[in-house]
């Protein structure tokens, strides 16, 4: 039986492991997440639309947008991002910390 278990594990982990082809952004490696956040920061720098930036950051799930931006900033610092990129991420982080979600029309409906 031990031999069978070993064979089963070998087959399940090595020969035919579970395939993850439709992954979510939350599972991305930290540097890819940080680069996405940098894209959002670049766009935010141009349009100054905090709501749109928060919507774009929501791709990562239910974490608060300031937390997502802050994590990206830390990743950027540790990965040696250029100073301009760091500055953009800092701007976005500040904006997300100050951002208050606008209630939707549906939320205001009686």
């Amino acid at each position: 039986m031990t031999l069978g278990i070993a064979l089963g594990l070998f087959y399940g982990w090595v020969i035919s492991p579970v395939q993850f082809v439709d992954t979510t952004p939350a599972s991305l490696r930290a540097d890819y997440r940080a680069d996405y956040v940098l894209m959002v920061a670049e766009a935010y720098h141009a349009d100054q639309n905090a709501q749109l930036a928060a919507q774009r950051l929501a791709i990562f799930g239910s974490d608060p947008p300031d937390s997502i931006a802050s994590q990206a900033l830390q990743t950027g610092r540790s990965a040696g991002y250029a100073p301009n990129d760091i500055a953009l991420l800092q701007d976005l982080t500040r904006a997300m910390q100050a951002y208050q979600p606008v209630p939707t029309a549906a939320g205001n409906a009686p």
Binding site: M1, T2, L3, G4, G8, Y11, G12
Partner: peptide, 23 residues
């Protein structure tokens, strides 16, 4: 052997599948 193989597959695919956390 077959029972062990089945248990191994259950463990590998359901209990502790390969996890791609850094995709």
């Amino acid at each position: 052997l077959l029972a062990g193989f089945g248990l191994g597959l259950v463990y590998a695919w359901m209990v502790a599948p390969v996890r791609y956390v850094n995709t």
